[in-house]
Design a protein around this nucleic acid. Structure first.
Lengths: 69, 69
DNA sequence: CTTTTTTTACTGTTATAGCGGTAAAATTAA
DNA sequence: TTAATTTTACCGCTATAACAGTAAAAAAAG
């Protein structure tokens, strides 16, 4: 289970926000290539760049573990 | 709100797992510097490296948004 | 259909994350 | 206390992510 893919989620949110990849990139302060890579599920992107994109799209990140719950 | 810091959480989980930074790094397949940086909240680490460390510590990542819920 | 926009893909260059090594603090154990 | 371990910090070197172009393929608009 949990073969969740972040890329498609980002793409979906961007679409629903009415943004092009370039617009999202500019809003997030990253290059268009980075947005493209994120949507393609490339995981070698930098954490801060991914965070910047998620922030624009109002996607929150949560970390959970048996210890946390 | 939500000035959540990932670094301390990683450190706490590592401690409770009885691992040194070096051991965690080796288990995750990253350099010791990367583990150190993550615990210091350095956000320029690569997403895949962060994921590898979280996986060892059994910390799951969830993405949430108004659209998702 | 045709035109426009967007997305995908590739390229060369630049900036820097990641790495292991080393060593000094800081912490923990004996 | 001293000794051993761990963490923090810094150092070059290397690998590669990020970037702005460019252009072709795909999608959307007219």
């Amino acid at each position: 289970m949990n073969d969740f893919e972040l890329g498609p989620m980002v793409k979906d949110h961007r679409k629903k926000a009415g943004l092009t990849q370039l617009e999202l990139a500019n809003l997030a302060g990253v290059g268009k290539t980075t947005v493209f890579d994120i949507e393609k599920n490339k995981e070698t992107v930098r954490w801060n760049n991914l965070l910047a994109v998620l922030r624009v799209l109002n996607i929150k990140v949560e970390f959970k573990s048996p210890l946390t719950k």
